[in-house]
């Protein structure tokens, strides 16, 4: 049984009771136990009570919702979201640069928020909406950020580009692309060794202007 990881940080209202290690978690657990009580009676009481701490060990089945499609893989818990995308789902548009959260090449959107896919585990991201560079275009029609990178020549070698584009999409959505300086600050998590920065700033600013 895989635990559904939906409904964590993003959707939780900012009004939980103080020092609430007990109340809400109790309600959650009570609800879970009630739900499980309706399950077939073959499940023992011990199994019901430990259902919450289902440990994932070794190669197991994971389901990732990538670009609107649920995809199933067999992988170990140590597999990063980045490796799951590249090595298990053949979505090689997301790039592995430093693999330590220092370069931004692996940037993807999870529940609409940009993150470094190298520093999170695939197993932790089940049930969440994951958007990679492959999911931006609508068929043959490029996303406005992709078009702007082409128009402004926002790349040279192109290795950092998928991460730059995903980060740029989020930067505009967050409202952090109102000036060139602001774009430079809020795009600083994406390094470009070719130094295409002026053109990247121009591309992000153009999309922000149209947004």
């Amino acid at each position: 049984m895989n635990l559904d990881t939906k409904g964590d940080a993003a959707g939780t209202p900012h009004n939980s009771a103080p020092e609430d290690g007990t109340r809400r978690s109790f309600i959650k657990q009570a609800g879970g136990i009630l739900g499980l009580a309706l399950a077939p009676p073959l499940i023992s009481q011990a199994e019901r009570l430990t259902a919450f701490s289902k440990t994932v060990e070794g190669v197991s089945t994971m389901t990732l919702k990538v670009n609107g499609t649920a995809r199933t893989i067999q992988a170990e818990p140590r597999v990063s979201l980045l490796d799951a995308l590249r090595e298990y789902l053949d979505l090689t548009g997301t790039k592995k640069g430093c693999d330590h959260g220092q370069c931004g090449a692996c940037t993807v959107l999870v529940e609409g928020r940009r993150i470094n896919s190298c520093l999170t585990l695939a197993v932790m991201n089940q049930g969440k909406e994951i958007t990679t560079i492959e999911g931006l275009a609508k068929g043959e029609e490029l996303h406005p950020m992709q078009q702007a990178f082409l128009k402004h020549d926002g790349l040279q070698c192109g290795y950092c580009t998928p991460g730059q584009i995903l980060s740029g999409v989020a930067c505009v959505q967050e409202g952090h692309a109102t000036t060139d300086d602001q774009v430079r600050e809020w795009m600083s998590g994406n390094l470009c060794r070719c130094g295409a920065y002026p053109n990247i700033v121009a591309a992000v600013r153009e999309v922000a202007g149209k947004a």
Binding site: T5, S25, V56, P77
Partner: peptide, 15 residues
């Protein structure tokens, strides 16, 4: 990275 098991905890007590 060494391999490990992964357990999502529902409560602080459980964690």
């Amino acid at each position: 990275m060494n391999n490990f098991s992964y357990t999502p905890a529902a409560t602080a007590k459980e964690a």
